[in-house]
């Protein structure tokens, strides 16, 4: 009788311990999830606070209307236009490479390639995606630029074209894997119906499968280009450090990201205007990429055909 009582006590205390343990763990993992929200809040708060300091010294009108960016050389001027132009120039060049090739690779993988070729191509794309961006920068500077110089005599060593082309290669795996996912999710019954009507493989791919997967494909392009805008080391190494309001691809330019790196490297005095300017550029970069990512995810959700 006494022994049983003891057992009961042990069991009760064990059950209590398990219960408390469960509650504590539940709280811990919940707060881990909460940290992700904290990160977002601190990114926004930090960028906003620092750039408020910047905009208290430099008028926001100058920031958006001036066409000269000269943060250190006197006369100083903070017009964001050259940096934005440089960023978009590189992005546009990269899209000429990444969009058609990414689409071609994805259609090939999803519709045409036999299994054994797919087994070789997919890891190849994964390797391409895993190479650090600094390596692409090295490649652009030491291989693609000298090659382009054979064509364009008066090209400057640091230029938007070389950086943009290599950037295109860099985001091919990103675009193609998202596009392939979209193509694969198109049900086979659509393809079979098309074949049954006498369509060729090409007609099925282009007129049936691609339109059915269009939302996913568009999203893949948007997300890929957003990645091109945020990319840093490649453009820092290969595209130059000359804020330049131009759309001439063989000139030296500077992107928003490359400016941030240039200034961070110089250990700008904490609290100075040029230190705060990287946050003003940073918040614009954040807003642009955030808008594009949100648009991409929205396109997928809004226009997805449910089969």
């Amino acid at each position: 009788m006494i022994k049983d009582d003891k057992n009961l006590k042990v069991r009760r205390s064990h059950r209590l311990r398990v219960k408390i343990e469960g509650k504590v763990i539940g709280f811990l993992v919940g707060s881990a999830a909460f940290i992700t929200i904290l990160v977002t809040i601190s990114i926004v708060w930090n960028l906003a606070q620092q750039s408020l300091g910047f905009f208290s010294e430099i008028s926001i009108i100058e920031f958006f209307s001036s066409t000269r960016w000269s943060p250190i050389l006197i006369p100083r001027e903070f017009g964001i236009a050259p940096l934005v132009a440089g960023t978009f120039l590189v992005m546009i060049i990269s899209s000429f490479v990444a969009v058609p090739i990414g689409l071609a690779v994805a259609i090939f993988l999803a519709e045409y390639a036999p299994n054994n070729i797919r087994k070789i191509l997919r890891p190849m794309l994964e390797v391409l995606a895993g190479i650090p961006t600094i390596v692409y920068g090295y490649f652009a500077l030491t291989f693609v630029t000298p090659l382009l110089k054979l064509v364009f005599d008066d090209m400057i060593i640091f230029n938007a074209l070389s950086a943009g082309l290599v950037m295109g290669i860099m985001i091919i795996p990103f675009v193609s894997s998202l596009t392939e996912d979209a193509l694969i999710s198109v049900p086979n019954s659509l393809r079979q119906a098309s074949y049954a009507l006498g369509a060729t493989k090409f007609e099925t791919s282009i007129k049936i499968v691609v339109p059915a997967a269009l939302s996913g494909i568009v999203a893949a392009f948007i997300l890929g280009l957003s990645r091109a805008i945020g990319e840093t080391m490649l453009v820092t190494i290969a595209a130059g450090a000359t804020p330049n309001l131009t759309f001439n691809p063989i000139e030296s330019i500077q992107t928003m990201t490359a400016y941030i790196v240039q200034l961070a490297l110089g250990e700008a005095a904490h609290g100075s205007v040029e230190y705060q300017s990287i946050y003003a550029v940073g918040i614009l970069l954040f807003i642009i990429t955030f808008a594009m990512n949100t648009l991409g995810h929205w396109v997928v959700r809004r226009w997805r055909n449910v089969y």
Binding site: T36, I37, Q50, G230, I260, L285
Partner: peptide, 25 residues
């Protein structure tokens, strides 16, 4: 669902922005 959307958004934030966050925080 907010945490989920937030996580996928965070994955798309350019890495240099994390550098800026780390620098000031």
């Amino acid at each position: 669902s907010f945490v989920e959307i937030n996580t996928s958004n965070l994955a798309g934030v350019p890495s240099i922005v994390y550098g800026l966050l780390g620098l000031s925080i």
